[in-house]
């Protein structure tokens, strides 16, 4: 059983709160540096694309948003499974906070994709397989958020959303594959997306920076929201009151005023 000690530790909000507090700067600082650095690099120093001109620079925010939004759903579904199988309270909190973050990133990737499409394809919206898939992902996120808000009982909300997240995760490969199939059926490859693999290395390096930066920022945001969630749920516990109120006397005095 000794192997499972880490697991029980992770399940404890108290341990997580203390541990995540130490982890925060290690995610925030490199994340911000990589993301902002990658953006500046991509905007100012990379030569424009041969075919698309300068509009290709949108890739440096579009692709990270889309990739992290996709990964976030799988992360959320994993947390959902952990919550259902081992009844880990912390996993329920993580699942709840990931949904709005993932939905924001999905929205961001849709809008940046549309704005990128205008100068590249001459139209804001194309029913391309990838765009359609991201749109469906957006709806899946919104469904989970709506379901969570509909429940008054927090525990039931978490469990219901966990079931829905897992059902969604099982369905995502099927949905993506069917959309891919649908697109190949209706559209002879007239519009070719610029695949990431064909990108020149000088253009790829800033993308790697913004992509890894976005992952780190996502982790940072998840920690921030989860910590707020822990304070909200555990506010009647002694350990949290002692930790937050005696550590900073100025803080409690200010709140008392």
């Amino acid at each position: 059983m000794a192997n499972w000690a880490w697991f029980h530790k992770w399940g404890s909000p108290r341990w997580f709160y203390q541990f995540s507090g130490r982890l925060l700067p290690w995610l925030a600082v490199p994340g911000l540096l990589l993301f902002i650095g990658g953006c500046v690099w991509g905007l100012l120093f990379v030569p424009p694309d041969f075919k698309q001109g300068n509009s290709f620079r949108i890739i440096y925010v579009h692709v990270p948003a889309a990739a992290v939004a996709m990964g976030a759903y799988m992360f959320m579904a994993t947390a959902a499974a952990v919550h259902l199988i081992w009844r880990m309270k912390l996993a329920a909190m993580v699942m709840k906070v990931v949904a709005p973050i993932g939905a924001s990133l999905t929205f961001l990737s849709l809008v940046t994709g549309a704005v990128w499409g205008k100068p590249t394809w001459g139209t804001w919206w194309v029913w391309d397989a990838r765009i359609t898939s991201v749109l469906i992902l957006f709806f899946l996120y919104l469904g989970i958020i709506a379901l969570h808000q509909a429940f008054e009982n927090r525990e039931a909300a978490a469990k219901a959303c966990a079931v829905l997240a897992i059902v969604g995760a099982v369905n995502i490969p099927i949905i993506y594959w069917s959309v891919e199939w649908w697109y190949s059926l209706h559209q002879p490859a007239s519009i070719k997306f610029i695949g990431e693999s064909t990108i020149h290395p000088t253009m790829l390096r800033p993308l790697m920076a913004t992509l890894s930066g976005m992952y780190l920022l996502f982790g940072w945001l998840v920690l921030l929201y989860t910590r707020a969630e822990i304070i909200d749920r555990e506010r009647n516990t002694r350990w949290l009151q002692d930790m937050l109120l005696t550590d900073r006397p100025a803080d409690s005095a200010e709140r008392g005023a």
């Binding site: 899946l140 469904g143 059902v167 369905n171 099927i174 949905i175 594959w177 199939w181």
Partner: peptide, 12 residues
């Protein structure tokens, strides 16, 4: 809201 996105493959 929950069910329609999951219906998509069947529709296709």
């Amino acid at each position: 809201l929950i069910v329609l996105p999951l219906y998509i493959p069947v529709l296709i």
